[in-house]
């Protein structure tokens, strides 16, 4: 098991010691085990951040170019590939945000100034509730219901 793990370049001292050492190896089960999957999914999210940023730039450019360009962009969004892309991006973003909320309490200090921090469950429920409300409100507006 352990000898199949890839050799890596971690935790080496800046000056090599007098004794020859065997190179470090990656942790067992890396990258498919436990929290490593979350680590990879988090890293893979860079793809969505990058492409969504390009999409925002393209949208701004279309608005600046004129109504015809904007309408063409809107029509392009009907393409099934765009719909699939947005669906996957939405799923990733939702996972990312809910994971962030779940982990959020550990990132907070024991006290907020003179006040004790609220219980972890209250923080997670508050953030998740706000996320659901904002998502529904935005969906309602974008759907044209408001």
């Amino acid at each position: 098991m352990s000898h199949a793990r890839p050799v890596i370049d971690a935790m080496k001292p800046t000056k090599p010691g007098a004794t020859r050492t065997a190179p470090p190896r990656a942790p067992d089960g890396f990258p498919s085990r436990g929290n490593y999957r979350g680590y990879l999914a988090f890293g893979f999210g860079g793809f969505f951040l990058f492409t969504l940023s390009l999409l925002v730039l393209r949208s701004v450019w279309a608005i600046g170019t004129g109504e015809a360009a904007w309408n063409r962009l809107q029509a392009g969004f009907q393409n099934p590939l765009y719909v699939i892309y947005h669906a996957i991006a939405f799923l990733w973003l939702s996972w990312f945000i809910l994971r962030l909320f779940r982990l959020f309490p550990a990132t907070q200090p024991k006290r907020f100034g003179p006040f004790q921090r609220p219980p972890d469950a209250v923080m997670v429920a508050g953030l998740s509730g706000a996320f659901v409300v904002v998502t529904l409100a935005l969906a309602t507006i974008l759907w044209g219901a408001v």
Partner: peptide, 10 residues
């Protein structure tokens, strides 16, 4: 096994 992520002395 020795700790992962570290060079092995022996």
């Amino acid at each position: 096994t020795p700790l992962a992520n570290f060079p092995v002395v022996r």
